[in-house]
């Protein structure tokens, strides 16, 4: 059982967090697009938002754990590729982390714009920041939507690159994120 990353591949913990977040983010994106179209008398009008917020908070905590885990782990060696592609992959990873962080932060700022805590599956609540700004819910909402679309486009590019490595370069890029070696 390889929990930690190795020089050849990612460990189970990195793999689990990667795919869990991928699932959560695509789920949240779909749920988000769907729930904003619901109207007052739709049965799931309230429930869909509660679920989106709860999953969002859990995903945020996984992101923080993941960043921590990344900082205390080694990174598998870079795969052979032209220099510009290595650079692009590196910066795409950094950008994905930044966009995910800001996306979840702005989601939090929408719901806490009036100082109210966010309940997570009714189990516990995440309190609001001690200060808020004028029209915080609108400003955060606009950024949240823009970042959500950006993240989906970026994830698609990221996935496209991984698939290209796996099937065209045949260097096992995808395998490294599926099972540890």
């Amino acid at each position: 059982m390889t929990l930690k990353n190795t020089a050849q591949s990612y460990g189970w913990i990195s793999i689990a967090m990667h795919w869990l977040m991928a699932l959560a983010i695509f789920g949240l994106f779909g749920l988000g697009l769907y729930m904003v179209e619901l109207t007052y008398y739709d049965a799931w009008y309230k429930g869909s938002l509660d679920l989106h917020k709860s999953i969002g908070i859990i995903t945020f905590s996984i992101l923080l754990l993941r960043l921590f885990w990344r900082s205390i782990n080694i990174k598998p060696a870079e795969l052979p590729a032209p220099k510009w592609q290595k650079m692009a992959a590196h910066w795409m990873h950094i950008a994905l982390y930044i966009v995910m962080f800001l996306l979840m932060l702005t989601g939090y700022l929408i719901s806490t714009a009036k100082g109210k805590a966010i309940p997570v599956f009714g189990l516990f609540s995440i309190p609001a920041l001690p200060w808020t700004i004028n029209n915080q819910e609108d400003i955060s909402g606009l950024i949240h939507a823009t970042l959500a679309w950006s993240l989906i486009v970026m994830s698609a590019l990221h996935a496209f690159a991984a698939i290209k490595h796996q099937f065209i370069n045949k260097d096992g890029a995808l395998n490294r994120m599926l099972t540890p070696k």
Binding site: L49, I110, S111, T112, A113, K114, K116, N135, Q136, E137, D138, G141
Partner: peptide, 16 residues
């Protein structure tokens, strides 16, 4: 009109 305040962030966002 943007100063509407019903003490609920998501509702105010809808109202605006």
């Amino acid at each position: 009109t943007a100063s509407i305040d019903s003490n609920h962030a998501e509702r105010d966002k809808h109202l605006k």
